[in-house]
Every structure is written in C-alpha cells, then in structure tokens.
C-alpha cells in the first residue's frame, strides 16, 4: 500500500512522495506550489479517521518521555531538511529510483537509528 501510494503520486501527480520535503515546502511556499502539498497532507491526516471506520485502532506504545519526544522531534525536523529527505523520500522513493544519494542517506539514518536504540536500550541503562 505504501508502494502503491508512492507509485500513484509519481505517475499521476508527478511528485516524489517524501513527507519531510512536502512539509518543508509549506513554510515559505512558492506561488502555486502549496495546494498539492496541502491536499496530500490532508489525505495523510484523515487516514486514522478512515481506518477507525473499518477497524479498531492498533494500539501504539510510546516509551519515550516528553523531553525525549521533543528532542527527537527537533532532530528529525532539522535532520530531514538538512539531509533532504526521510524514510519515505530517501528510503522508499529514493531506493526505488536507484539513487546513490538516497542509498547513502538511508544507510546513514538506519545506522544512526540502530546506534541510538543500542545506546538508549543497552549501553546507557
């Protein structure tokens, strides 16, 4: 389903499905460049509402405390813009179009994720 969404977005709308890039372009939008971003984001935001119409919500567990959540959010915000992409843009779309840049980015954020979880879960406790 994630692949289908990315496929539709590039083929029908001609856009790479990258969440951080779509969001980041909304802050100082060039004229005529905001509407497609907003309708896509509206679709993402309505998804949990549609999901609960047909199924019971999947339980989500967030172990991180508030301070960690906020620090993590800041890191993800800065990092995805500085590195030009996140899991969807580099990880799914970038690897799909066989981009060496996205392969490097994906390896980097996966490695950082592995190391961070190792440190938090196993080394620092």
């Amino acid at each position: 389903m994630l692949g289908v969404a990315a496929a539709l977005f590039i083929l029908v709308n001609g856009r790479v499905l990258g969440i951080s890039g779509i969001l980041g372009g909304l802050f100082f939008p060039i004229k005529g460049d905001a509407a497609w971003r907003l309708s896509f984001v509206a679709g993402v935001l309505i998804a949990p509402v549609v999901y609960t119409l047909f199924a019971t919500p999947i339980a989500a567990r967030i172990d991180a405390g508030w301070a960690t959540v906020v620090i993590a959010g800041l890191l993800v915000g800065v990092g995805t813009r500085y590195g030009s992409g996140c899991t969807s843009g580099h990880g799914v779309c970038g690897l799909s179009r066989l981009s060496p840049r996205s392969l490097v980015a994906t390896l980097a954020f996966m490695a950082a994720g592995f190391v961070t979880v190792f440190l938090v879960r196993h080394a620092l406790v």
Partner: peptide, 30 residues
Amino acid sequence: RRLVLGSLIFGAGWGLAGFCPGPALVSLAA
C-alpha cells in the same frame, strides 16, 4: 556532508522516539 550529517541527525531522532515524519503526522491526527 549535508546529506550524510542530516541523515545521521534524523536517524538519531528516529531512534529516540520511534517516529519518522509520516507516522508522526498520522499519530497526531489519531
């Protein structure tokens, strides 16, 4: 450097909370 450093920063944040941008938006809306 931008690509690698940015992605490393992102990965650290991802590992801390378990959220990347897409799922975070969905969970906010939930």
